Computed example of a mutant assay.
Amino acid sequence: MNNPQLNRHGELIHLLSTEGLPREILTHILDTAANFVGVHQREVKKLPLLRGKSVFNLFFENSTRTRTTFEIAATRLSADVINLDIARSSAAKGESLLDTIANLSAMAADIFVVRHSESGAPYLIAQHVAPHVHVINAGDGRHAHPTQGLLDMYTIRHHKGDFSRLSVAIVGDVLHSRVARSDIHALRTLGCPDVRVVGPRTLVPPDLAAMGVRVCHELEEGIRGCDVVITLRLQNERMNGALLPSSQEYFQRFGLTPERLRWAKPDAIVMHPGPVNRGVEIASSVVDGAQSVVLEQVTFGIAVRMAVMGIVAANEA
């Protein structure tokens, strides 16, 4: 089956998911991002890579880190950036998603960065844009968040190097987490041999074993001896019914504390895609501790998003 993210030459034209992308493309994105990491330290922080291009940020869901870092990334590449205010747009009057895209395309859009509550929305858009227009998924429903997955991979590689000897634990609400799915696909593609998912049975999907993932329902078993611990937010807004007795009980069983972190390797890094709920999935002392790389993830996210936009803009369908 053809991958809609790639053109006939196997080049990246849209970034919709980490699933199905070959290792060479993931590595190319990470290597390209490495060239952009130091841009913010320059006296002139802009590069001309997207000069004359228009990047439209379409966020149908709330966002702080993703939206802002995409805007910074596009600006640093010298693009014209348009942030659509969805609440005050015609979408609020009932205009369809594809009609919104058609009208914005008529305004000479080159890249759409899309966050949407419906899984598959970026795929739908990618099917209906002109060959020179690119779509980047900034998170769709429970499905995927590929740039978050890639910045997580960049952070892991920066601190740990080769993936082939790593043990990575993903802890928390995996059932509702598009980040977890993107991380799992990327980790497996990049050769990580030991990917563990840790959480209560109600928050772990049943199909993970088929993806080569080890499922654990006890925190100690899940993070013991790990190199990387990725904690996830409880996504109460996506939960239908009482999947957990309380956030306090969740923290008692699965919250990452300094004492529990000792089950992992002494040099393990702690990650979180944000927003962090302190005292629910992770203790403040861990978020602010020496093993935390949460803020580095945000910084690296700018470079990764610069890399993705630069790469897709250079290719046509």
Score class of each variant (00 low, 15 high):
Asn2Arg: 14
Asn3Lys: 10
Leu6Tyr: 03
Leu6Ser: 13
Leu6Val: 13
Arg8Gly: 15
Glu11Leu: 15
His14Ser: 10
Ser17His: 02
Thr18Gly: 11
Leu21Trp: 09
Glu24Cys: 12
Ile25Ser: 05
His28Gly: 13
Ala34Ser: 14
Ala34Glu: 11
Asn35Cys: 13
Asn35Pro: 00
Lys45Thr: 03
Leu49Tyr: 10
Arg51Tyr: 04
Lys53Asp: 03
Leu58His: 00
Phe59Lys: 06
Phe59Val: 12
Phe60Asn: 09
Asn62Phe: 04
Arg65Asp: 09
Arg67Val: 10
Thr69Asp: 11
Thr75Met: 03
Leu84Cys: 02
Asp85Ile: 04
Ser90Val: 06
Ala91Tyr: 09
Glu95Val: 09
Leu98Met: 07
Leu98Thr: 11
Thr100Cys: 11
Ala102Arg: 15
Ala109Leu: 01
Asp110Val: 04
Asp110Tyr: 03
Val113Ser: 01
Ser119Ile: 08
Tyr123Ile: 10
Tyr123Cys: 07
Leu124Met: 06
Leu124Phe: 04
Ala126Glu: 03
Gln127Asp: 14
Pro131Arg: 01
Val133Thr: 14
Asp140Thr: 01
Pro146Glu: 11
Leu150Ile: 09
Leu151Cys: 13
His158Tyr: 13
His158Thr: 15
Gly161Trp: 14
Asp162Val: 00
Val171Asn: 07
Leu175His: 00
Ala180Thr: 12
Ala186Asn: 08
Gly191Ala: 10
Asp194Lys: 10
Arg196Glu: 02
Arg196Ser: 01
Leu203Ile: 05
Asp207Ala: 15
Asp207Leu: 09
Leu208Cys: 02
Leu208Asn: 14
Gly212Asp: 01
Val213Ala: 05
Val215Ala: 01
Glu220Gly: 14
Glu221Trp: 10
Gly225Asp: 05
Val229Glu: 07
Ile230Glu: 12
Gln235Gly: 01
Ala242Ile: 06
Tyr250Cys: 04
Glu259Gln: 13
Arg260His: 12
Leu261Cys: 04
Leu261Arg: 07
Arg262Asp: 14
Arg262Glu: 14
Asp267Glu: 11
Ile269Cys: 06
Met271Asp: 12
Pro275Arg: 08
Ala283Ile: 08
Val287Arg: 00
Val294Leu: 10
Leu295Cys: 10
Glu296Val: 06
Gln297Trp: 04
Val298Arg: 02
Met309Pro: 00
Asn315Val: 10
Glu316Ala: 13
